[in-house]
């Protein structure tokens, strides 16, 4: 299920991230470089899996570095 970058920001907030951190995220820059940690990222991935009906195995997840990557991946999955 396709998701815009703005909708993904909503999921990041739902994953428990602080709204000010989420608003400041550059969608084209790596999430790990912008303050997400070893709990934030898997929580966000779990939420994307549950809401969008996709499975992010380790091979898929490794290539999802930025919010743009997530949006592109979900758009490709239709």
């Amino acid at each position: 299920m396709a998701k815009s970058v703005e909708e993904l920001r909503g999921l990041l907030e739902e994953a428990g991230l602080r709204p000010e951190l989420v608003r400041a995220l550059d969608p084209s820059a790596p999430l790990l470089k912008q303050g997400l940690d070893s709990v934030d990222l898997p929580t966000f991935c779990a939420l994307v899996e549950d809401r969008c009906g996709v499975v992010l195995d380790e091979m898929t997840a490794m290539n999802l570095r930025t919010l743009d990557d997530f949006a592109r991946f979900l758009a490709e999955r239709g």
Binding site: L41, P42, C45, A46, E49, L56, D57, E58, M59, A61, M62
Partner: peptide, 11 residues
Amino acid sequence: GGAVEGLVRPC
């Protein structure tokens, strides 16, 4: 435990 990104995480 449940798998997220191929690794075990608490659910």
